[in-house]
Design a protein around this nucleic acid. Structure first.
Lengths: 136, 136
DNA sequence: TTCCTTGTTTATAATTATTCTAAAGAAGAT
DNA sequence: ATCTTCTTTAGAATAATTATAAACAAGGAA
């Protein structure tokens, strides 16, 4: 169980002021065992449901983007009408269940090392991500 | 050089009526040597520029979606505010230059076989795609 | 504390990509 | 030609995201 105090420090360390709203969002995002995949809208609704306090949509966007920038969240590339984020920021891959519109983690060892045998002059690799689409 | 006649047949084979607009779009998309990565907006502007004829935006959406459905175009999963398509429908991967917002093909042999050593009950794999993000 | 500066939240407006709609037009078959 | 069906189109509708600017809260200094 992660304490509110830890979130406050986490925020301070990133020079983000620990506001009530941000702490609420931390509780929902980071106070859990398993990785969490979500859209802004999922999160927006969860905050209302779980904390009883309402946070404006703009703040949810601001906060998620701030956390993403600080490396606390990972954006997942799927072609969907909504952007997905992941609380697991380590290098890993995903299944995407197209029908259910649900993401499932794929551990690195379930994919094996990927060696990119081509390089683009003047550019370096930032990330390598595998997306496995699933159908019935 | 692919002829207009071939496009007409291609369209007929997919039970899409060969209209002037669709043929124009075919010329732009398929009458080229290298693979072509584009957004709907790119294509919309190209049609105006290259053919001199204007096609409504709705038709571009309709046609691209029809071609995608028929397997003549591939959708590429990137997190961007616009959806990207690719005229190369074979199984292959991509670099994405984040700064330039540009896609570059990655041949399968430059990535090597990817074996997904995990399965999800009741689901089968539809596609496996690697996205390599590039930075300066 | 109290004051001040700066960062944050908020409702709402603005923007942008995409889809929908309904009417006019073109293709294909008879 | 005529009829049916498919297609195009402009514009409206929708939905995700970003911008705006005023009210508010946090942190520091006096």
């Amino acid at each position: 169980m992660t304490s509110k105090q830890e979130f406050i420090e986490k925020l301070r360390n990133s020079s983000l002021r620990p506001t009530k709203q941000r702490i609420n969002i931390c509780e929902i995002l980071f106070n859990r065992d398993k990785t969490f995949h979500f859209t802004i809208n999922d999160l927006f609704n969860l905050i209302k449901d779980k904390t009883g306090e309402k946070v404006s949509l703009a703040t949810v966007y601001n906060t998620v983007h701030a956390f993403h920038k600080k490396g606390y969240l990972k954006e997942i590339p799927i072609n969907s009408n909504q952007t997905y984020f992941d609380t697991n920021v380590t290098d890993h891959h995903h299944f995407f269940d197209v029908k259910e519109e649900k993401l499932i983690d794929l551990k690195n060892e379930h994919v094996g090392p990927i060696e990119i045998q081509k390089s683009i002059p003047g550019k370096k690799i930032k990330s390598v991500e595998v997306l496995v689409k699933l159908e019935d």
